[in-house]
């Protein structure tokens, strides 16, 4: 499988074969799917829950749910899209249930590679951007972050969040506008313009 939004049809067929084998009772083969998608599943859960332990629990729970309902996967979409939607819904329900209010600063690692805006220290910048991200809705946070991770196509992100393609495009644009505005508010203008 490729690491972009487009999956090789042969690889998709190979994946469907694996799924068929798992449904027929070769449970250990599910390991192939877990190994392939665990990082992305965990990342989605972490973006929503902002806590590594909770995110790991939610991602595991999502894999178990996917296994239980594997027979219902109709193969009209990619397995990954179907799985990530389960991960998203599971993480959102974890957040609702457990009322996770942890600060995301320590747990989200947005690697910084900005060179031109040296006025803001890297650590502070990471903190401020996370603060700004936290002011967006769960859906907007996930939409914009999934868009930048570039593993899923825009269409897949729209399926994941259960909205149409145009809505997701607009949402990602608006989320970035809002992030810039929130960051400006946080930095009180001058830090950005230094």
């Amino acid at each position: 499988m490729t690491l972009t939004g487009v999956q090789d049809p042969n690889s998709m067929q190979e994946e469907f074969d694996v799924i068929d084998q798992v449904i027929k009772g070769d449970h250990d083969l599910y390991r192939v799917l877990v190994d392939r998608y665990k990082s992305y599943a965990f990342t989605i859960a972490l973006k929503i829950l902002k806590d590594k332990e909770e995110a790991e629990e939610a991602a595991q729970d999502a894999f178990i749910k996917a296994y239980k309902y594997l027979g219902k996967f109709d193969k009209r979409s990619k397995f990954s899209t179907w799985l990530y939607r389960i991960v998203f819904n599971t993480a959102v329900s974890y957040k609702r249930k457990m009322k996770v209010q942890h600060s995301s600063v320590e747990n989200i690692s947005i690697e910084d590679s900005l060179n031109h805006s040296s006025a803001i220290e890297l650590k502070d910048k990471r903190k401020f951007i996370n603060q700004a991200l936290n002011r967006l809705s769960d859906q907007d946070q996930v939409a914009v972050q999934m868009f930048y991770l570039k593993e899923l196509s825009l269409e897949e992100v729209s399926i994941l969040l259960n909205v149409n393609l145009n809505t997701i495009k607009v949402r990602i644009h608006r989320a970035r506008q809002r992030l810039a505005d929130e960051l400006k508010t946080i930095l009180k203008d001058e830090a950005l313009t230094l």
């Binding site: 665990k38 990082s39 992305y40 965990f42 990342t43 972490l46 590594k52 995110a55 790991e56 991602a59 690692s109 947005i110 690697e111 910084d112 590679s113 900005l114 031109h116 805006s117 910048k125 990471r126 951007i129 700004a132 914009v144 972050q145 868009f147 930048y148 991770l149 593993e151 970035r176 506008q177 992030l179 810039a180 960051l183 400006k184 950005l192 313009t193």
Partner: peptide
């Protein structure tokens, strides 16, 4: 510049690894 900061920060995200 404001949007570029957001754009480049989000671009530099990486996949997280579970345990």
């Amino acid at each position: 510049e404001e949007l570029r900061i957001i754009h480049e920060s989000l671009q530099s995200q990486k996949l997280e690894s579970p345990s």
